[in-house]
Computed example of a mutant assay.
Amino acid sequence: MSDRLRGKRAFVTAAAVGIGRACAVAFAREGAEVFATDIDEGKLALLKNDGVPEVAKLDVRDSAAVDAMARRVGKIDILLNAAGFVHHGTVLECSDADWDFSFDLNVKSMHRTIRAFLPGMLEAGRGSIVNISSAAGVFKAAPNRYVYGATKAAVAALTRAVATDFITRGIRCNAICPGTIETPSMLNRAEAAGPGGRDMFVSRQPMGRLGTADEIGALAVYLASDESAFTTGVAHIIDGGWTL
């Protein structure tokens, strides 16, 4: 631990597994007081073994619940939005319900948490918001990722809008755009693809390997810390060269 986030309070969504979990643990290891949330209470509780004692169930699709959680938590310095879902298929496989669900979880959830926590940041005159977007949809189109790509492009635009609106008031807002990261969600998609599914994902990576959630967590620490004080409104790509 180097205490890069010592004295800061962080709030993380979708923290039970994958990228959200890695970010919550990385924040805690750097000295932040972390409040982690997810809908999976069982896996969320395991974070206590990694220095994240404050955990709570939260459905980020519930505006009233998000507002109530913000009142419970109080002022924070760091907001990490990691909730998301990867919908598979083209426009022909995307129903209205699929579209609404993906935008509600992938985009509107961030609208909810930012709206809830931003007033406290503004009152304090400082804050770093980090949104998990994707290289797919922002920097490159991916096959069969129609609505997913649309939502992640929206996250990048939302990020720039927040950064622009509050740049003079001590608020920074950045996005992280990962490539293919080895997470439980990704491994489930690989398994669904059939034998050799994981190898198929690896074969797309110029570096010959998948990214790790810890590597995303390391970038999140930088964006949450004062080291990135001159950085806002940026979609930071971390994809092992996938978009080259």
Rank of each mutant, 00 (worst) to 15 (best):
A141Q: 11
E215P: 04
L122Q: 06
I216T: 03
A136F: 13
C173R: 00
K48D: 00
F230A: 02
M186G: 02
V107E: 03
W99V: 06
G89F: 04
F117G: 09
I176P: 07
T212R: 13
R21T: 08
G233T: 04
G127M: 03
A142D: 02
A82M: 14
N174D: 04
Y148E: 07
D77K: 12
C177R: 03
C173L: 12
G241A: 08
I216C: 02
I238L: 14
A229R: 15
L79Q: 13
I181N: 04
P206K: 03
H111W: 15
F201C: 09
H236L: 13
I237C: 14
L79N: 13
L118T: 06
G194L: 01
S102C: 15
A22G: 06
R4Q: 15
R169M: 09
S95G: 09
A16E: 09
A220D: 06
A26W: 09
M207K: 11
R172P: 06
K43V: 02
A141T: 15
R169H: 08
T90I: 12
N144Y: 07
G137H: 12
G196T: 08
A153Q: 05
A56C: 01
D98L: 01
E93V: 00
A97W: 01
V147F: 02
A156F: 10
I78H: 05
R189D: 13
I167C: 13
S102T: 15
M186A: 14
F117V: 04
L5Q: 09
P206H: 12
A36Y: 07
R115E: 10
P178Q: 00
G194R: 09
A32Y: 13
V60G: 07
D59C: 03
A154G: 08
R126V: 09
S109C: 11
L118P: 01
C23H: 05
G31I: 11
A65W: 06
I39K: 03
G217Q: 01
T37I: 04
E182Y: 00
F117K: 10
V147S: 02
A65R: 08
I132W: 00
A65K: 05
L187C: 01
A192G: 05
A32S: 13
G149C: 04
Y148P: 03
E30H: 07
T168E: 07
V34N: 06
T243A: 09
G74M: 03
R29Y: 05
